[in-house]
Design a protein around this nucleic acid. Sequence first.
RNA 1: GGAGGGGUAGCGUAAUUGGUAACGCAGUGGUCUUGAAAACCACCGCCUUAUGGCUUGCAGGUUCGAGUCCUGUCCCCUCCGCCA
Length: 420
Amino acid sequence: MLDIRRIRQDPDTVARLLAKKHVDVDLDVVQRLDAKKREITLNIERLKAQRNQASEEVSRRKKRHEDVADLIAETRAVGEKIKELEVSLEPIDQELRDFLLTVPNTPLPQVPEGESADDNVEIHRFGDIPVFSFPAKPHWELGEMLEIIDFERARKISGSRFSLLRGMGASLSRALINFMLDHAKERGYQEVAPPYLVNETSMFGTGQFPKFVDDAFHVVPHDYYLIPTAEVPLTNLFRDEIISTPLPLKFTAYTASFRAEAGAAGRDTRGLIRQHQFDKVELVRFEEPANSEQAAEELLRDAESILEELELPYRTVILCGGDMGFTQALTYDIEVWMPSYGKYVEISSVSNMTDFQARRASIRYRPSGIKKTELVHTLNGSALAVGRTIAAILENYQRASGHVQIPSALRPYLNGQEEI
RNA sequence: GGAGGGGUAGCGUAAUUGGUAACGCAGUGGUCUUGAAAACCACCGCCUUAUGGCUUGCAGGUUCGAGUCCUGUCCCCUCCGCCA
């Protein structure tokens, strides 16, 4: 959520920044509702002050056993007027809040102009694209040949966009998760094992709701939602709290993630790239506002270095305004080379949300030397999406025999095994 | 799921028949001190330029006035049942 005061004071700048994201928001509506709300609120508070004084006067007179009938009658009229104004305020306030919840975060200055993924700007590249002396196979074929991924039976058990790992496939997944968690812990992130089911308030807090309701799996009779990313429970850790320990706070979690993939029909239907359920190790940071830009760079390195240790070729892009998400002020995508696609495919997304989520979720801290509380900045990034990492390893490390070499960084997690 | 008990400031506790939320500890700043402790003063829940308004889990209702009375709801604890 954006600060209403910011919209009130400098609507032109906010409008210009939102235009960079290629979203059309009518800020006049916000300003009109805000002005109306403030006018009515002021009147209500004046009348309440009057009523409070009158009530105290009633109390005083009663103690002196004086007659208070007139005063009570008079004050009742004030109460009715307050009630009337409150009733008129309610729909305005509701409309204003609903509207603000649909206004996206504004991009930071370094975000490039652009409309779509084609306009993203590459900033970093690592590793050489592999050249195969044999016909390279896509990971779904390799996975089935090696009997480590079973798409058919997953479809039978659940449906499309589900997969099932067996034998060394399952072991490889577990090895990656442990490797990624250890990597994060070495870099100062505390490991968390959060719930996979969260309430609606948490989904609003991180910005999934109200806009992306259709992307979530809703557990109907109990009104829980399956987490689309560990970002949701991790960022909501401190919802409605004033953080009393020194910032930054850094957390990591391995969780499954669940996405309905509404609107993705027909895209990436083969393989592990786009699933309803996938494993991911996530990093989340709570930062002082002044440090969040530097924290974003650190977080990016925290994620990139995993691919470097796995010796997988990747590139990093900074998303242009038009390709950015709703809650983000800055996003880097890390894309791993996927031979079957013949291009780089997103394997991590690292974002600075500035105070956007913190305002929604009311996550604050006390800056040293200042009495007032302030909103923190939240950041998160995948480190990494496990399914896509498995796909990248199978494809980039495949041999002519159809076997797959295990990256040396992972071998300690697989009893030294060198090949699948 | 059932029964009972309970949610008041970070923690622990108050609040006559309904009369407008108090105290202690912890914490922050200041005075004092070579420094610290102690003592004293202020702050110590939120909004507001201010006046003032709001705040007793949450949402309503009754009332001039609700921590207190009424309705709904969430959460916690204990016991029972079920359960990996």
